[in-house]
Design a protein around this nucleic acid. Structure first.
Lengths: 345, 345
DNA sequence: TTGTATGCGTTATCAG
DNA sequence: CTGATAACGCATACAA
C-alpha cells in the first residue's frame, strides 16, 4: 500500500552493473582510488534509477548524523529568523542538515527538544536559551559525551560550552548614555528576570551609565515583566501612575518599547518631548512606529554564521572547541526620533 | 576523543539483567505480553544506565522515521511562526519529530530541502510553496512512492496532495467590497505573480467585487511586485506618478501595505482621507502603523494544527488521504482606521 | 512469557 | 582498483 514502489539501494545498482556494493558506495562518496570510468557508470545509473542514499543506514554505520540541532525560544522574531538564515547558509555549504525547534520560552519544552535531538544523534547543538531556563543540567547528556553545545545570544556560562553574543553591558551603557545626553534625568528601565545574561548585562550597563553621570538609581526605576507586547502596554500604565513621571524609558527589547509608546501616546503624552524612549534589537517595526524607535542593532545573520562555522569547524577539523570560548560581535546604537529631545546627538 | 563515554544500547541492558535484547526492546516499546516485573526492572535500569534509543537503528529497521518534514518560504512572519507552533503541538502529542526548513522563496532551495527530507526518509511533508515555484515536479519522488504531501496556504492543485487554505477569493472580495462601500471609486491592487493560488484568488475576488459594483477594471490598476517592504515603498512611488490618483489600495499582504502607507504619508497624502489602504494577514504591525491597518485575519495556529492532524491521522490510522482533499478555514475582515473614509461600515 | 536469528542499507576492514 | 564480509543498534518472525 504505502511505499509501493520500493526504494533503490546500492545493491540494486551493484547487481545491475555487476560490481560490488562496496564499489558503488565508494563511487557515490567520491572515494579516491576508483576507476574513473566505472565510477562514471555507477554515478550515471544511480541517477537513472533514482537512487537516493538512506541516511539512517549511513548514520548508523558512521555514527555521525551530519545534522545540527538548533533550539531557539521562538522562531517569529526577525532577529531569530536572520540567525537561522545565517546558520542555514553555512550548514548547507558544508552539507549539514538542520533540525530546528522552539522552546516557546519554557525550560520544559527545551528539555524535550534536547531529548529528541539526542535520540536523533545530532552532531552538535546551537542553542539560545528559553526565558525561564535557570540552569543547564538538561544539557548534561551532551556535555558529558563531548557532543558540542554552543550558546548564542541568550547564553549561559559553562566551561565546556562556547558562546557567541554581543557586549550587552556596553550596549546598555551606550543607549542609556545617549538618553542622558539628550537631557533625561529620570530613566525607567524595563527588563525581564531570569538568568538571561542579555537582560542582566543590559541592566548593568544602564546602571553604570547612570552612576557615571551622577544619576542615582532606585528600585522604583525598574519595571520587570516578560517584555511582551502586552507587558509594554502594562508598563506604560504603571509609569503613568508614578508620582513623578520619568523623562526617559529604556526597554530591553523593541516589542515592549513600541507598545509602551503607543500606550503613552494614547494617554496624551508626547514622545520624545515628554518622555524619550529607546528599545533594543532593531526590529523592522522600529521604523513603523511613530516616532521611529531608537534602538541597538546587531546582526543576527552574522551571529548565525559565526555560530555554525564554529561548530562545523570543530566537527570536521576537530578544532578544540574550548579554545574559542567566547565570541563577541559588534552592536550599534541606532538613533531615531523617539529619543531626540534636543535635536542633536 | 569525541563521544568518549560510549552510548548504552539494549544489549548492554540485556547483559546486565541476563535477559535477551528482544525482551528489552519489547519492554521499552510497551509491547503486550511481557512479564510485568521484568519489564519494570528493564525500564528502571534503562533509565539508570542513561539509555536512549538510537533513532537511526530503529528507523532503519522499521522503515519509518516518525518524522514530519516542514518546508515553508520563510520562518520570520508571525503567521508562519503560528503555523509551526500549531504543527509542533500536534506532532509532539503524537510523538512525531519535525524537520523544519525554509525555501527562502526559491524553487531551487525548495528542491534541495525536499531531497534532504527524502534522504532522511520523513514519513510525510507539510509544505507552503515558495514564491517562484511554478510546478511541483520536484515532489514526484514523494508522490510516486505514496509518501503523503500536504500543501497549506500557498498550495498547488494536485490530485494526490490534499491542501489546506482559506477562501482567498472571498477574502479578496470582502476587502474590496469594504473599500467600495467606503466610497472608493478607483482601487489599486498590489500583488505578486507566480502560480500562487493565494495571490491569484485574491486578485479574482478583487475583480469580482469591482464588477459586481459596476466598477471597471483596467491593467493600470494592477501593480505587480514581490510584496516586500521595499516593494511597498516603490509601489507608492508608482502610484504617486499616476495621472489620476486612486482613492483606495488593496495590497495582497500587510508588509507591503504598511510601507506603502509610510511612503504616501511622506509624500504628504492622508490615509485614509485621500487614499484608503487595506492589507492582508493581520500581522502585529497592523496595529503599530498609524493609521492602524484594515486587513484579513486568519489563524495560522489552527492551520498548522489541522495540517499536522490530517497528516498524522493518515500516517497512523491509514486514513485514505485522498478523501479529504481540500480543507477551507475561516478568515475574517478586520476593519481599522486605514480604510475608514466614512466613519461607518 | 522469553530467546534466537535475521535483516534493514550503509561503510570500513581486509584481502586479493 | 575491486570484492567479500562484518558491524552499526534495533525490531520482529519464529521457535521454545
Amino acid at each position: 500500500m504505502k511505499n509501493s514502489k520500493s526504494v533503490v539501494t546500492i545493491y540494486d545498482i551493484a547487481k545491475k552493473l555487476n560490481v560490488s556494493a562496496a564499489t558503488v558506495s565508494r563511487s557515490l562518496n567520491d572515494f579516491p582510488g576508483v576507476n574513473k570510468s566505472t565510477k562514471k557508470k555507477i554515478v550515471d545509473t544511480a541517477r537513472e534509477m533514482g537512487y537516493s542514499s538512506n541516511a539512517f543506514a549511513a548514520n548508523l554505520r558512521t555514527k555521525r548524523s551530519n545534522t545540527i540541532g538548533v533550539i531557539v525560544p521562538r522562531l517569529n522574531s526577525s532577529f531569530m529568523s536572520d540567525v537561522i538564515a545565517g546558520i542555514e547558509k553555512v550548514a548547507n555549504n558544508s552539507n549539514f542538515n538542520l533540525i530546528i525547534s522552539q522552546s516557546l520560552e519554557t525550560m520544559k519544552k527545551e528539555n524535550n527538544n534536547i531529548q529528541t535531538m539526542f535520540n536523533n544523534r545530532v552532531d552538535g547543538l546551537l542553542v539560545s536559551l528559553a526565558y525561564d531556563t535557570t540552569n543547564i543540567d538538561h544539557f548534561e547528556n551532551f556535555i558529558k559525551r563531548d557532543i558540542p553545545v554552543i550558546f548564542f545570544d541568550r547564553i549561559y556560562e559553562h566551561k565546556s560550552c562556547p558562546n557567541i553574543h554581543i557586549n550587552n553591558f556596553q550596549a546598555g551603557y551606550d543607549i542609556t548614555e545617549h538618553l542622558i545626553k539628550q537631557g533625561c534625568k529620570k530613566i525607567i528601565h524595563i527588563t525581564a528576570t531570569g538568568v538571561q545574561n542579555v537582560y542582566q548585562e543590559r541592566f548593568r550597563g544602564y546602571k553604570s551609565a547612570l552612576s557615571n553621570y551622577g544619576i542615582g538609581f532606585s528600585d522604583d526605576m525598574l519595571i520587570i515583566n516578560n517584555l511582551s507586547a502586552d507587558s509594554g502596554t502594562e508598563a506604560a500604565k504603571q509609569i503613568l501612575q508614578l508620582p513623578i513621571l520619568p523623562d526617559g524609558i529604556f526597554s530591553a527589547n523593541d516589542v515592549c518599547a513600541i507598545n509602551c509608546i503607543m500606550a503613552l501616546k494614547n494617554a496624551g503624552l508626547k514622545v520624545p518631548q515628554d518622555i524619550a524612549v529607546a528599545g533594543f534589537n532593531n526590529d523592522p517595526s522600529c521604523r513603523i512606529i511613530d516616532p521611529n524607535l531608537t534602538t541597538i542593532d546587531y546582526r543576527g545573520y552574522e551571529m548565525g554564521e559565526v555560530a555554525a562555522n564554529l561548530l562545523i569547524n570543530h566537527l570536521t577539523n576537530n578544532y578544540d572547541i574550548q579554545l574559542t570560548h567566547s565570541l563577541v560581535l559588534r552592536h550599534e546604537l541606532i538613533i531615531r526620533e523617539s529619543s531626540l529631545k534636543t535635536g542633536r546627538f
